[in-house]
Amino acid sequence: MNQNDFIALIQENRGIIHKVTHLYCTQEEDKEDLFQEIVIQLWKSYGKFRGDAKFSTWMYRIAINTAITSIRKTSRTIRTVSTEVIPVEIQLEQYDKEKEAQLYQLYTAIKELNEIERSIVMLYLDDRSYDEMEEILGINQNNLRVKMNRIKDKLRKITNNN
């Protein structure tokens, strides 16, 4: 196992870990803890990675598994948190006010979903195919489509209520 190769792969795909930490944690400290935990778990399992799935697929699996099986308080009180909902780097650059507001609304709404729904919506927004979603989540595609429709309805309701 080459640690340098592993580090390079993590840096290349770090966006996946960041997205998972943003979705499952609210406080910056929790996000850092979860980031570290995911990297540790990826490293522990790296020896078993045989390349039969894409590295990103394998990474999503471990990152989501780690996030949902670690005991953490869920972010149900997210309505009271303002700027922490959106990743800091997005607030600082590139985005106009309207986009920032949309993104804020999106993150706030997603955090109202349960843990499994959050992972589904993350994969959907990342434009993963239903094949790949099934490969990561182990939920069959028909069921995933039903869940996705339910999630869309739920998100609409949440944003209308806010």
């Binding site: 840096q11 960041h18 800091v88 590139q94 986009k99 993104l103 434009d127």
Partner: peptide, 12 residues
């Protein structure tokens, strides 16, 4: 909008 956040703007 979502996908852009995974691009270089992401924390290094």
């Amino acid at each position: 909008l979502w996908q852009e956040q995974g691009q270089p703007a992401q924390k290094t």
